[in-house]
Design a protein around this nucleic acid. Structure first.
Length: 318
DNA sequence: ATGGTTTTTACTGCGTC
DNA sequence: GACGCGGTAAAAACCAT
């Protein structure tokens, strides 16, 4: 994978089409992009400067008939949210032929049989069935937690990888699906706490944390500790607090971060405390118990945290 | 498994509406 | 008297080793 120093013979560089601004790091020669291979190549020494450039998406539009022919590499967009990425065949439910004419009853029966078999083949493979169920679960839980589409997609990808790497045996589909979703939400910066996720899942917390740790480790997923700030907007809106409160809550967290009080403390607790403290500063009334309610954190923790937060905030305010 | 840290549980006292 | 708040001690949960 990492052969950035690979060189190519001049003979191969036939489809170069446009010059790049920067020079070759090796010999200073001119570079040219080779969009056919997705590489940037030096014209003089043949050094491959950059490989695997991003394909910036399909050309959905064609401006003349020539482009129409060469750029029509576009099909329906695929999605990781369907177990077959939306690529398999579906036989329509309407008993019409390609011209819209109705079918004879004989042919209708035939079509019905075809549908049946098509469905069977489509979900035959156990992995496919597995995925189908898991993705359904992910979707259900994501809805219950109010998580956006992109998180579901990410969760689907994670699950798919777990499946490909044979991480499933010995673990429940439910558990892995839940863990995937939990991880996806965190990666997307819209975390849900373990308690919240557990509530909509069919697995208990023990299994969830165990499975979560497992797939994170096995798939080498980088999941940074949740940022307290990412919880703030949700809590604030759940409590119907103003944007001002939300803003100051963020400031408090920032100030605390400077002072290094954040490490080791639960992010949810910090977020809850900052919202409470901020509401106090803005003269908007919320009780500790209300905050603890929406944040799923004990009042004691809120008390402890918010004192610390205010102390750290003093420095900034004063 | 163990020890250190953080969070939770449970209880108590104080002031206010 | 109920409620919101603050404090404390002990238990439980969590994490790194």
């Amino acid at each position: 994978m990492s052969e950035h120093t690979r060189t190519r013979t001049t003979e191969e560089e036939t489809e170069t089409d446009r010059d790049e601004r920067a020079g070759c790091p090796e010999c200073g020669g001119r570079l040219s992009a080779d969009s056919e291979h997705g590489e940037t190549v030096c014209r003089d020494c043949g050094l491959v400067v950059q490989e695997d450039e991003i394909d910036r998406g399909p050309e959905w539009r064609a401006f003349d008939s020539a482009e129409k022919d060469e750029k029509s590499r576009v099909g329906a967009p695929t999605t990781k949210m369907m177990h077959d990425e939306g690529l398999s065949t579906n036989i329509g439910w309407q008993d019409k032929d390609a011209y819209g004419n109705s079918l004879s009853s004989r042919q209708r029966q035939k079509m019905q049989r075809l549908r049946t078999w098509n469905e069977r083949f489509r979900t035959r493979d156990s992995k496919e069935r597995n995925l189908k169920q898991a993705l359904g679960e992910i979707d259900r839980m994501a809805s219950a937690l109010g998580l956006p589409e992109n998180v579901r997609e990410t969760a689907s990808v994670i699950y798919r990888r777990a499946l490909d790497e044979d991480l499933l045996p010995g673990r429940s589909i439910e558990g892995v699906a839940t863990a995937s979703l939990y991880a996806a939400a965190r990666q997307a910066g819209v975390p849900r706490s373990l308690d919240e996720v557990e509530r909509v899942s069919r697995v208990d917390k023990m299994e969830l944390t165990r499975t979560y740790r497992y797939i994170i480790r096995e798939l080498n997923l980088e999941v940074k500790p949740a940022d307290p700030e990412s919880y703030v907007p949700r809590f604030a809106s759940d409590l119907e607090l103003s944007d001002e409160v939300e803003r100051r809550a963020r400031e408090l967290i920032e100030a605390a971060r400077e002072d290094g009080i954040l490490s080791g403390k639960s992010p949810v607790g910090l977020a809850a405390a900052s919202v409470y403290a901020s509401a106090l500063l803005c003269n908007e009334k919320v009780t500790q118990s209300e905050v603890s309610e929406v944040a799923d954190i004990s009042e004691v923790t809120i008390r402890n945290r918010y004192k610390e937060l205010l102390e750290a905030g003093e420095v900034v305010t004063a």
